[in-house]
Write a protein that binds this DNA or RNA. Structure first.
Lengths: 227, 227
DNA sequence: ACTTATTTTTAGGGCAACCTAAAAATTAAA
DNA sequence: TTTAATTTTTAGGTTGCCCTAAAAATAAGT
């Protein structure tokens, strides 16, 4: 399996998490290539039965394609956690490194890393790590910016694509598993004031849109999500 | 720096360790490509001032080329040791993995691995790890097959290119730093009978040609080479 | 519904790194 | 030293993945 094919499948998978149909333009923009290039590769993937392609209508992964995408994502997330745990790489740098390593990981080393980490369920940003069979855990979660009333929440996951965001959250000590109390929500700009341990911070709507939390109705049931 | 350029430089370096002149054919054979392909890339490397090239006469690395080669080798050997120490990968498998990883290692991670391992001087096969400046330790050493009289020797290094050899030596518990006593050398086929701890083994000349040891005259001076 | 704007695809190239086959240079042998 | 064998290079081609520019299909605006 070639590197670029792995990359296309992974990116299509990630877009499918957010959008009904994945269009050529979306994919091209996400991958930093031209739409023409995306079209070409999509046709190749379709010929390999990794995606279903209807010209002008977008792509979607086949079962085989999704399985491959999930394997790449498994590699990516295991490597992220491995770099963090074994080498102390800060969480804002693990993503870019994993982008490169994910394509050179053998089955044997994958298994050893998995064992070393104790078959972890989440990566350093709280994203679920698919198992070897391609099962990926779906947790009930809402974006922090979509919460409308003051309440206690637990951070489940944060976006990993912008290192600056991660450094900011790191400074505030906000990580997956962190408990926050939403004190108030400003109607004007939806900025949110939260308490965390001893300190209080005000988070912009941009920041809260990149944070997913456990919804209130699930907070009681001891869904502690210990790693 | 591109993967294939790194590979060419590394292979030229390795050939230069054994031969005066590195020829197109040697390089092509070592890399599993055709001589025509090697010629093409050599010209490219020469244009980049990484090798000195005289048509029909072979190549040699420039200072810049040697420095790059040594950086790749540093990556390779640090990764081999890291895989062995951190993940318990057996020494007959670390080479092939490192071949892939060496091309995706960032400076930051290189430093972290180096720190994790305590700035090690040798890889799992006993080969010296160049420092960041490109200095590589030269130890006095002889091939075991070149020793002509019974004596005590210490294994310094073994060839890492054949996993089968490494598994064989592993079964015999022969590793770098292992002390052996040469009991006898058979004149007919140069096979060697050695004692190691409680057991005695007879090694063929093929095997002994892949093992480097500390020459007798250096054995006293406590050159223990602790890792 | 028809024109305009946008999205997507096709057509035609470029570049890196490989290949085969033929030509040229070097080395070895008679 | 002339021929034969070997090594090395050149010439031309393939594949993978990217590009730009132009054409075609779809979607939007009046």
């Amino acid at each position: 399996m070639l590197k670029s094919i792995e990359d296309y499948l992974k990116n299509i998978y990630e877009l499918q998490e957010h959008f009904e149909r994945v269009t050529t333009n979306q994919l091209a923009e996400k991958m930093g290539i031209t739409p023409a290039s995306a079209t070409g590769m999509i046709k190749k993937l379709a010929a390999m039965n990794l995606v279903k392609y209807r010209p002008y209508q977008g792509v979607e992964l086949t079962d085989a394609g999704r399985l491959m995408a999930l394997e790449v994502i498994r590699h990516h997330r295991l490597i992220e956690l491995f770099l963090a745990k074994a080498l102390g790489v800060p969480w804002d740098r693990v993503h870019d490194e994993a982008e490169k390593w994910e394509h050179v990981l053998s089955e044997d080393i994958e298994e050893r890393i998995d064992r070393f980490l104790g078959s972890p369920r989440w990566d350093p940003h709280g994203a679920p790590i698919p198992d070897k069979a391609g099962n990926i855990e779906q947790r009930p979660r809402v974006r922090l910016c979509d919460i409308t009333h003051p309440q206690a929440v637990r951070v489940l996951e944060v976006s990993d694509h912008d290192p600056e965001l991660l450094r900011y959250l790191g400074k505030l000590n906000i990580y997956p598993q962190t408990d926050l109390t939403i004190l108030s929500i400003e109607p004007f700009d939806k900025s949110m004031t939260v308490r965390h341990q001893q300190s209080t911070h005000t988070l912009s709507a941009l920041v809260t849109s990149y944070i997913w939390v456990l919804p209130e109705e699930h907070m009681k049931k001891g869904q502690a999500n210990a790693v």
